Amino acid sequence: MAMNKHFHMSKGEGELSYSRNSSIQETVWLMNKQLLESVLESLFKVSYGVDKICNIVDLGCGVGPVPLALVSLVSNVIKGKLKELECDESCDEVGFKCQIYMNDLPSNDFSKLFKDLMSLEGLQTKYDGNPLCFFMGAPGSYYDRLFHHNTLDFVHANYALHWLSQVPAGLWNEHGVPINKGNVYMSETSSKAVGNAYWTQFENDFTKFLKNRSEEVVPNGCMLITLLGRPNDSDFFTWRTVELKIINQSLIALISEGLVKEEKLDNFNFPAYHPSMDQLESVVKKEGSFLIEEKRIVIHDSASEIKNKHERAQVLAKSTYALSESLISHHFGDQILQPFFDKLVYFAFQHLDLGYLAQNHSLTILLRKI
């Protein structure tokens, strides 16, 4: 399945929408806020009299609190710079303006996104009658070229690049028979070929991403990328996120209830890959367009602030549903969405009740174009 045709986070503002169930992504973003703020401040260190337009893109922006928080932070950094320079609307000229591109697949809920952006307080600050920040939608896959040569000053991507451009082709043999039966991702029962297929797809996708951004980012421009990763390379098959675990368990349970056919599950594979930091570094070094200036791994237990296991299971199930609904609906049909969600809640609670953690490993790298 090609992701650009069917994939999107759950739309709208309902109880199971992504906009209301992306608190885990927001938590990760907040952990990197200080680093991001430092990068943004360095972008706006320009002199008066220079008609500087700073071009920023949020790749895989989605909807919800994260893109709104990014835009608010950019706006606040600009206002802080103006205050530092003692600029107001009486100044003859301001030395910089900012253009922010919001990128995601065309199926993203851009209507919701821009409605939320326009409602943000403090974004109406103007200079000489014009906003300091201009916003544009940039639909398309971030694995393709999206912008003109040497136009982007800063690229931001939060919890986006672990999504692959497609389901790895190597998950079927030469006769079209699935080789990862009963699994939606790599597991202890998967063959080495399954792991190789996932790694090859990620390596190709991330290399393509870096090559295209190297064309678009200005010399010395930078990218701050955070994605869902794995602890290390030694647990290649044994490590799975709690989200992938309960998705797999839920679909198997629906087979036993006759709501899903076994062959449908055998042909369903989750189009994501969670690399280790060593794997990320190896691709960056091999592609050769960027240097890693900073790297960090943050381990966090999802929704750990909620002590009631039933309530926490609901949060984990809703966030899992919000990111997987379009994939499940496309492959299995809309009729299983409600029982699928019910199973997610059940298995999320079982996971927590057995004393297991709901840990995620977030990898962040700050890249600068050579």
Rank of each mutant, 00 (worst) to 15 (best):
V315Q: 07
S256R: 15
L105N: 04
I299P: 08
F110W: 05
M118V: 07
K343V: 03
D144Q: 10
G14R: 00
K307P: 08
H8S: 02
K112I: 04
E13K: 07
K33V: 05
K5V: 08
E86K: 12
R296W: 08
Q359S: 11
E257D: 14
K295W: 05
W199S: 15
A160G: 12
I365Q: 03
A348F: 01
Y48A: 15
H331E: 03
Y159M: 11
E89C: 06
I252P: 07
E243P: 09
L327Y: 02
L120H: 02
V77M: 10
A358Y: 02
I56F: 03
R296A: 11
I306G: 04
K264W: 10
W29I: 03
H175W: 08
G122L: 01
N150S: 11
E203I: 04
K211Q: 14
Y143W: 04
S256G: 13
L16W: 01
E13I: 06
Q350V: 06
Q338V: 10
L117Q: 01
C54V: 15
L363F: 07
E293K: 14
S329Y: 00
P131T: 00
T241M: 10
F209I: 13
F96L: 11
S10A: 15
N150G: 04
K79W: 10
E37D: 09
I292S: 12
H361K: 02
N267E: 15
S19D: 04
K97I: 03
A169D: 12
Y356R: 10
A358M: 08
S19W: 00
R312K: 08
L227T: 15
L30G: 04
W239E: 10
K11A: 07
H310W: 11
L82W: 09
S17K: 00
L161C: 02
F332V: 01
V71R: 06
C98G: 03
S326K: 00
M9C: 03
T364S: 07
N108H: 02
F96E: 06
L254M: 11
L367V: 05
A317L: 06
G355P: 09
W172I: 13
Y101M: 09
E281D: 13
D51C: 05
K83P: 08
A157L: 09
A197L: 10
L73I: 06
T238W: 11
D353A: 13
A253V: 08
Q25R: 04
R230K: 15
A253N: 09
P219T: 14
E216W: 13
Y127R: 10
G129C: 01
M277D: 14
G176S: 07
L210S: 06
K295T: 08
H149D: 12
S256T: 15
S187K: 06
W29E: 04
S214F: 08
T189P: 07
N220A: 15
L35I: 14
F147Q: 07
A317F: 05
K192R: 15
L36V: 08
A157H: 11
D278L: 13
G229W: 06
S329C: 03
P67E: 05
Y185N: 03
L105I: 02
N232R: 08
N180C: 08
F270T: 10
N360E: 08
N220I: 12
D233L: 11
N21H: 01
D109S: 00
S190P: 06
D88Y: 09
W163S: 01
Q279S: 14
K33S: 10
N21I: 00
I246F: 04
